[in-house]
């Protein structure tokens, strides 16, 4: 019985994760500048890959495998904001300007 329920939950996780990935990709194409695109890639994109790891953790009835899936998920969630932050910082310091829509820019003001 528990196997059946786990299979259903894992399937739902997979579908939601794939949907998140598609939305992240749409965001990367539609959003106007680097910094707004970063929101889409770092949050929504991470959710997409993370949910597939969670799906494995739910479906795998084997201790080490579950542990590895959870470690992978944690790793993904911890590294995504770091890489997004590094890229945003590098772009900011290199002088890439945000889109014209950006009204407030304390960073440029303080430089």
């Amino acid at each position: 019985m528990i196997y059946e329920i786990a299979a259903y939950i894992a399937g739902v996780f997979l579908l939601i994760g794939a949907l998140f990935s598609v939305v992240a990709a749409i965001g990367i194409v539609r959003l106007p500048d680097l910094y707004t695109r970063m929101h889409s890639a770092s949050k929504v994109g991470t959710m997409g890959a993370g949910l597939s790891f969670l799906a494995i953790a739910t479906i795998a009835f084997d201790g080490p495998l579950i542990l590895r899936a959870i470690v992978g998920f944690t790793f993904l969630i911890l590294t995504a904001p770091v890489s997004a932050h590094l890229l945003a910082r590098a772009a900011c310091l290199a002088g890439y300007k945000p889109d014209n829509l950006t009204e407030l820019n304390d960073f440029a003001k303080d430089q």
Binding site: Y35, L78, P81, H85, A88
Partner: peptide, 16 residues
């Protein structure tokens, strides 16, 4: 900084 990046609509860019 990490938590801010993963919260609604915000992304940390740099620390002064």
């Amino acid at each position: 900084a990490n938590l801010i990046t993963l919260t609604p609509g915000t992304l940390s860019v740099d620390v002064s």
